[in-house]
Design a protein around this nucleic acid. Sequence first.
DNA 1: GCCGTGATGCGAGTAGTGCT
DNA 2: AGCACTACTCGCATCACGGC
Length: 317
Amino acid sequence: MSHQYGDERIVEWLNDNQYHPRSPAHGSASCLYLLDDLLEESDKFREAAESGEIVYQEDFTVGEGPSKWNTDLVVGPPTDDVQVTIGDDRTIAEGTPEEIWLAIDAKSVMTEHGKARRNRQRDINSFADIMHRHYPGAVTGGLLLINTAERFKSPLRDEGDITEHDRIESLVEETVEMFRDIDRAEGDVSPNVDGVGCVVVDHTNLDDGEETTLVTDPPAPQEDDIVHYHRFLEILIDTLESRWLTGAPPDLSELRELEDLHTTLDRQVVELAHAAHILGDEIEDGDVNEETIERLESEVAEIEVVVESIESEYEDD
DNA sequence: GCCGTGATGCGAGTAGTGCT
DNA sequence: AGCACTACTCGCATCACGGC
């Protein structure tokens, strides 16, 4: 039995379901399909999931107040021990993550592409920004569903009011380009998004027997395009594996022998930023814990060790 | 100056969901 | 069951521009 990827599965979903802009159903479906793809494609991810080292949660809230953000899917180490049920169709447990290793936001541009795409682009950027402010090391991904059908029936418009998409080819081409041009983190710990995937579909939302199809010819992204679904998947996996799924946390006393100082530095920056963030929250609430200060102090000490190691590694003598 | 076309930003609006 | 609340766009009002 060969694995069916998320881009094909969301098309099947659209064939079986009406698209409704006010419903989170399509976004939730695409995120779970992506999760299945990660479990299929990455051995390290699957092993971490099977051993209960990581869990997933849908519709996860980050932050508080007016700037809070709901993320469609997050993955990270759980707050409590979990049991992965064998024989489940998904070998990762659902639970509350304590830290966020991966965050995905699913968005769609089904009609009125001209303005919708700007709003979605803004959404992706601020999603990555807010996410990184709270969880600096989180690997972030935006999954875009883009419609290329010439006619589209919006459930929000009056009956019989079918939207005609004039010059849809160039609209979709420009839309894909906009998401291709969003600044990427490129493997670094950064406020930018790590990956953006564009799935182009032909979906009229009409009950006319017309089948919804996955578009693979241009203007849909081609295999070597960074916004192509498979490349998007690859970027997420590479970044996740090198940042989080590296086995045991580095032993600082053995640091000189570590091959990848860059990975260690990144990881330590993440730990430090996270400790600083927690302390920041506590200051905000006027309830600062001794332990939080101690944790920040020890993270500062650890990053000093990392920097010293890098220094001794590279100084000429 | 008027009309048509295209771009833009704001907030209204309803399916879904959680809570009582 | 019914109420309150939020999510996620999408429609509309408005603006900018250019041809006639």
